[in-house]
Amino acid sequence: MISTGLGLGFTAQAHAETRLQVSSARETDDSGKSKLVYTARVAEATGDSVSGGTVSFETAKGSLGSAVVTDGEASIKVDSLPPKTTSINAVYHDSTGAAVSSQSISVSPADSSGVADFTVTASPSSLSTTAGDYVTTTVTVTPENGFSEIVTLSCSGQPATTTCTFSPSTVTPTGTTAVTSTLQIQTTAASGNLSRLGAPGSSQRTVWAFAGPGILALAGLGALRRRNAGFFRMVGVFALLAAGSFGLTACSARYAYLNKGPSPTGGTAAGTYTIAIEAVGNNDSTVTTHSVDVTLTVK
C-alpha cells in the first residue's frame, strides 16, 4: 500500500524562493492497470504558481523520473516503487538546472505480488547542458521476486540532432542484484556547412576549375596554328571560347564562396525536452515494459 500524503517545503537560496508541495495518489488507466501518481506543486514565496523548470522524484534506489513544471504543477506516473522504498524526495530545478527547493513524503512499499518483475530508475533525471555538449545519467534495473532475464534499453523523445547511447544497451539482473547502464545524451552545436570547400572531392574540383581552362586554351591554340585545316581552326575557336567561359565560371564560384561563406546549419535547439527511457524484458513468455522519464534542458 502507498500512503497518500502532503509535504510542504521551503528553501531560500541565492535563487528565487519557492515552495514545494507534494502529494501522492493511485489511479487506474484505461487498460485497468493501477498506477502510482506523484504530483508536485511549485509556487513562489508570494504564492504565485511557477512555470518552467523541472521536478525530479528521487528515492534511495534512484530517481523515479522528472517532469516539466507547467502552470505550477509537475507529475509522474509509475507502475511500482523499487523494493523497500520508504520515502520520495521531490526536487525542483529552475530553468538554469540548479536545485532550488525540495520536499519529501513517506510511502509504504506495495505488497509483493510474487510475480518476477523489475523496476527502472535513472539518476539524475533532470539534466542540463549547452548545445554541442553531452550529459550522462545512470539507469538502474532492480529485479523483484527473482527476475533474471535480459532487459533491453532504448530512449525516445530526444530533440532533433541529438543521440542517445546506452553502455551497455542490454542488462541482465541476477535475480537479487540490481544492474546499471550509463546513458549518454549527445547534443549538437550549430556549425557552418563546409560542403563547398574541404568536403570530399572538393580538392579535385578545385584543380579542374583552374587546370581545365588552361588545357582547353592550349588545345585551341594548337588547332588554330594548323595550316589549311578549316575544320581544326573552327575547333580551336570553340576551345578558346569554352576555356574563357570555364574560367569565368570557376572564378565566379570562388568569389561567391569567399564573400558569402558557408551556410550555417542548426544544432540542437534550446528548450526543455522530456526523454522516455524504456526498459523491455521477457518474463517467460510475457513481455514486460517499464519506463522512466528524464528531462533535458538545452541552453
Rank of each mutant, 00 (worst) to 15 (best):
D29Q: 02
I277G: 01
T268H: 04
S23D: 03
S24I: 01
G97K: 03
G175N: 05
T297Q: 10
A250K: 10
V287N: 10
L20V: 05
E144C: 02
A122K: 04
A199F: 11
S101L: 02
R19T: 11
G271I: 04
W208R: 08
T182Q: 10
S95K: 13
S112V: 11
T121W: 02
L81H: 02
E149R: 11
N228K: 12
D79Y: 05
W208L: 13
T161V: 13
L20W: 00
T11N: 13
A25R: 05
S80M: 09
V207P: 00
T4H: 11
P159M: 04
A189Y: 06
L216D: 09
T59K: 01
T130E: 13
P173A: 01
L81A: 04
T286N: 12
S285M: 09
S56T: 03
S252I: 06
A178K: 09
L197I: 15
G97P: 05
P200T: 11
K84N: 15
L240W: 03
D293T: 11
T59F: 02
N283D: 13
A276W: 10
A43V: 01
H290E: 12
A67E: 00
K299S: 15
T187E: 03
R26D: 09
S169H: 10
S34N: 11
K61R: 10
T265G: 05
V298R: 00
M1K: 11
V115K: 14
S202R: 08
P124C: 07
F166Q: 03
T138S: 12
T162D: 04
L6I: 05
Y92E: 02
S191H: 14
P168N: 10
I76S: 00
P109G: 12
Q103M: 10
S106V: 08
V139E: 08
T152R: 12
V280C: 03
I105V: 10
T119A: 03
I275Q: 08
T180Y: 05
T142I: 06
T206N: 15
V179S: 05
I185T: 05
T165P: 09
D117V: 02
G214A: 15
S169A: 14
V78D: 01
S63A: 06
A243D: 07
E149Y: 12
A131K: 03
N193W: 07
G52D: 06
N259S: 14
S95T: 15
H290A: 04
G230H: 06
V237E: 08
A116M: 04
I76H: 00
P168Q: 09
G271H: 08
Y134N: 15
L8S: 14
C251H: 14
E27K: 13
G267Y: 06
C251N: 15
A67V: 00
T297H: 10
S154P: 00
T268K: 03
V294R: 00
T70C: 05
T170I: 09
G222D: 14
